[in-house]
Design a protein around this nucleic acid. Structure first.
Length: 393
RNA sequence: GCAGAGGUGGUCGAGUGGUUAAUGGCACCGGGCUGUAAACCCGGCAGGCUAACGCCUUACAUAGGUUCAAAUCCUAUCCUCUGCA
């Protein structure tokens, strides 16, 4: 029987893994960073750049946001998200679960689903595991996420336990509905004759449990029991201490099925990625490179820089002397600062471009290190750079 | 020349006798951003001293004056704008 996605580990160093995830639309080398494209666009970047220079193989889309606008009907009419936005490589769609957390003041949580007060026009909208699956089938993404509840990172034991139990029930419902949609041809992204793949969508489960390790274990068991094509760690980088995130990854990742990709949702800083990969995580997404790019922060091999700072006013150096991206090859800090200060949209575009290039290149170098068995040294070198930078400040 | 209006901190602009070192906006300086309600949000912004509560100095064109108290009232001077000659 053909599967929707094929996962293969190609190299390992300790808990860190290097692999390939083949979907019906692209082959993704892991560890991978997936640029976030909430509304069907990676803000500020043309797909041309993502395809050629950056060579991103997969990006995100968001079910909640695309569900509100343009809506399922339009998406179905135009034949799914790939046809709509012209991105022909893989897409992973988040289920709307994060909005249960981020839009907490605009929603009511019930066993059946979530009642959202639309942040756009105030209308009442009902999202359930079934609705989320339907919307994600309409979008036709390669990887579908189950609808989960993402409780705040510092939630207490009892709250977390109740939440994770409902998430588990939602996961089971998600899978039932997902299977039904796959067999009734509701997936707009279906690829007939996709080689040794089924051409269908893959479905990932999400492990919750906040900072409580026993609950993490419990959630993992429940999720694995249902059975998914990949497993995500959710509910981190949502207000808890950074060490909690590392501890949860360290505890959880090695226990997650080795024969499926592990995805740490919503993380993070370059350092976070290194630390999570070290602990056995394969996939990441985060708004940080795109949002921070828009708001004036560039990630570089020497740490973060704020392009607004006056010290860059006449600096003819690129953002990062060690970066080979087209922005660093051509534009000076002085010019980028000028663009930012004058409110020119090109500032956001160029900083976003560089930041994503930096993130994707970092992942390339990490993969290479794992293949060569030098990731341990790579990680140490990375730490030294960061502590040097902290001292310098 | 005559008539009218007006000169406030980097800038625009409130304030028209008493918590005014002076509201706001902009500019400037700095910080934040982790499955995107964010091309956004927060802080600082006369000078000096202090670890800090605070304290001191200089400030609303210039120079005088009235008053317990003046950016605010009076006088003179300088300057700007508008209209008429």
């Amino acid at each position: 029987m053909y599967k929707p996605a094929k996962w293969k580990i190609t190299a390992q160093e300790g808990n860190a893994r290097c692999g390939t995830l083949q979907t019906r639309r692209s082959t993704i080398e892991t560890p991978v960073f997936m640029p976030v494209g909430t509304q069907g666009t990676v803000k500020g970047l043309r797909f041309e750049w993502l395809e050629t220079e950056l060579d991103a193989r997969i990006i995100l889309g968001n079910t909640y946001h695309l569900w509100l606008r343009p809506g399922a009907e339009i998406i179905r009419t135009v034949g799914g998200l790939h046809k709509f936005n012209s991105w022909n490589r893989s897409i992973l769609t988040d289920s709307g679960g994060f909005q249960v957390f981020s839009l907490t003041d605009l929603r009511k949580l019930k066993e059946d689903g979530v009642e959202f007060r639309s942040h756009i026009d105030g209308s009442l909208r009902f999202m359930s595991p079934e609705v989320s699956m339907e919307m994600q089938a309409a979008l036709g993404s390669e990887i579908v996420m189950v609808l989960d509840e993402c409780p705040p990172g510092n939630s207490d034991f009892e709250t977390t336990r109740k939440s994770l139990e409902m998430t588990a029930r939602w996961a089971a419902r998600s899978k039932v509905k997902f299977n039904e949609l796959q067999t009734t041809g509701m997936d707009t992204g279906f690829v007939a004759g996709a080689g040794n793949l089924s051409g269908q969508q893959a479905l990932f489960g999400i492990v919750q449990g906040a900072g409580h390790l026993p609950l993490r274990r419990e959630s993992l068991d429940k999720t694995v029991e249902i059975g998914f094509d990949g497993y995500a760690i959710g509910g981190l980088s949502v207000g808890e201490e950074k060490q909690v995130m590392y501890d949860v990854c360290e505890f959880l990742a090695p226990q997650m099925p080795a024969d499926a990709p592990r995805y740490l949702m919503g993380v993070g800083t370059p350092e976070d990625l290194i630390e999570a990969i070290w602990r056995g995580v394969d996939m990441f997404d985060c708004v940080m490179p795109t949002r921070n790019g828009r708001t004036g922060t560039a990630f570089t091999s020497a740490g973060k820089i704020n392009i607004r700072n006056a010290r860059h006013a006449t600096d003819s150096a690129p953002l990062d002397a060690n970066c080979a991206c087209s922005v660093c090859r051509r534009y000076s800090r002085a010019y980028l600062r000028h663009l930012y200060q004058t409110g020119e949209m090109l500032a956001a575009i160029l900083l976003t471009h560089h930041n994503l290039a930096f993130y994707l290149d970092l992942m390339r170098r990490v993969r290479q290190a794992i293949r060569f068995g030098t990731f341990k040294e790579f990680r140490r070198g990375f730490h030294e750079q960061i502590s040097q930078q902290t001292k310098a400040e």
